[in-house]
Amino acid sequence: MFAATKVLRAAHAERVPMIKFIGKRSLPSSVDHTPHAHPASPSHELPSDFSQKSSASFSSYRQKAQQHGPLGRANASADGSLGSVSGHSLGSVAPVKGEYFDRNELPARFRRQPIDLSEIDAIETGGATLVC
């Protein structure tokens, strides 16, 4: 019986599958994180602006940073975008005499907010509905 097992084992050993167990998967010890073209990219290359660091310098950061409009003012006259020129240079925002702004013409954040029922209750009861 022992001999038969040996023969079977020997026969099995003749066949070595190409797939071999090489151990548990592990993360590579070093990974190159510099941008490379995506493997499914049809052009097999990245656009040139990928290689630029997003914040290489403060001035380049200011060129593209946004806070209520772009911070950079270099192209102020070219694009005329909000925030790219000083408010003072835009002139007065006051309406001319006889003209009035409707609140609903203002940006959304300045408009009246809808009042819900619980808020009306709170006002009418002096806040009592909030504590009962």
Partner: peptide, 11 residues
């Protein structure tokens, strides 16, 4: 457009 780590130019 993305790179091999699925990043856009803003990583």
């Amino acid at each position: 457009v993305i790179d091999h780590e699925f990043r856009t130019k803003l990583p």
